[in-house]
Design a protein around this nucleic acid. Structure first.
Lengths: 232, 232
DNA sequence: GTCTCCAGTTGATGATTATCAAATTTGCTT
DNA sequence: AAGCAAATTTGATAATCATCAACTGGAGAC
């Protein structure tokens, strides 16, 4: 594991304040691996053998039932996923696959639980992390239950716009297929939603999205920090 | 606060292993209050001044946006709600109101955070609690995204059936209006869903639900522990 | 450069779900 | 027990969303 990768993991709020020796043990027990795009990493229902950290690339978390499948979240560097299952020693609730070629750090759940039991600061950092994850899912659920599909797309565009520092052109980071599933709709309807948002000053060309007037779009989308603020 | 209420709170896994003195401080700082039915307790966006514990009765957590409103969860005794906001000192993401006359324990978030900072066992108990809450929301989200409304109703009935120890008649604990919102549909469609489930051996009379053959219903509902198991 | 493949788009249609209005039942009050 | 308000059901209709099929355009293979 390269020092800069190690540093970027250590910089995560989850690990930042933990005991140096315990962190050392975690890292030495871990595997740093590269995966190609579209590789299945974990399957829901499997025992949670590892905690995963996305060092480079991106990963899709999705759920399945019957024949259906739906994206639950997309994870980009540097952050962890499936922490809850690792800690509880419970089966994964979501499957995961790489979206692109990715570098991942796999830490055995046993070691995570041991560090959790020994290191008080680590235990407290996990609390904060889980609380944030919990609140993120609640927001995502409110987004789903309280908004129409076009509103969800509109608010997604506004969030990208904010993340890009207010630039009036933003670039989609994920394929429209994945985005559609993430937003709880079909790819066809995502296309049509983009079309419908032309009426609110949005134009889409490939993965380039141009926002004519963010204020105007916001008047339609009606964003609220209680759903759309990635922090808090 | 009556000793039996105190004991039932202490028995929660969140508090069970915590230091007796710290627990004593928490309880002495807390307010035990009775509320009538349909009383607004908290409003989303407000600062998280208290952690709530439902001692008796039941509470609805709901989100709103635009003019819409949707039930996110229903909390029954004895359990806590809005722990994540209390710990993070962040605004509530959900509003709460009593569903029936209820007895609630309100613990100031400041005291919760102080106890979290001092008591290592409490900090670890919070981790387990938050991990469980997180997984519960993920399940709820999978339920929403991966199932039709009739399937959600069918699986809800199966869960009640299991909770009632396999009895072939179960009683609805909540009004159909609330249940509909919880399951992400309108009251009208819940009615029709019950009607549609007659074809799978379910008959509904008021709040009494009779399941002719749970196996048969399960063949339609296709429950999975990764969505429907309340534990894990 | 041309071909192929695949993601994305578009159009037509069907299923699901929401909305509105009215009828009916239920539960509670007097 | 009668009367009233609220909850639920039912029916008719409309909006939303999914599905299927056909088409388009661009990226990579050869």
């Amino acid at each position: 594991m390269r020092p800069e990768d190690c540093d970027s993991v250590r910089a995560l709020s989850l690990f930042k304040d933990m005991d140096a020796a315990v962190f050392g043990e975690l890292v030495s027990a871990a595997y740093l691996q590269r995966f190609p795009a579209q590789i299945d990493l974990i399957k829901e229902g499997d025992p949670a053998d590892f905690l995963y950290i996305v060092v480079e690339g991106s990963v899709e978390l999705y759920g399945s039932s019957n024949g259906r499948e739906s994206t639950m979240a997309m994870v980009r560097p540097v952050s962890t996923f499936i922490l809850a299952a690792s800690i509880k020693d419970a089966p994964y609730l979501m499957s995961a696959r790489t979206l692109e070629a990715s570098k991942l750090l796999l830490i055995p759940s046993d070691d995570i639980r041991r560090a959790f039991a020994t290191d008080d600061k680590f235990a407290r950092a996990i609390v904060v992390e889980l609380a944030s994850c919990y609140r993120a899912v609640i927001k995502s659920m409110k987004n789903l239950k309280l908004r129409t599909s076009i509103e969800r797309v509109a608010n997604y565009i506004l969030r990208m716009h904010a993340r890009a520092g207010g630039s009036d052109t933003v670039e989609l980071q994920v394929g429209k297929r994945n985005l559609a599933s993430m937003l709880g709709m079909t790819p066809e309807n995502l296309s049509r939603a983009f079309g419908a948002l032309q009426a609110h000053g949005v134009s889409v060309d490939g993965r380039q999205i141009t926002i004519e007037d963010a204020e105007r779009l916001a008047r339609y989308a009606k964003p609220t920090p209680l759903i759309d603020d990635p922090r808090g």
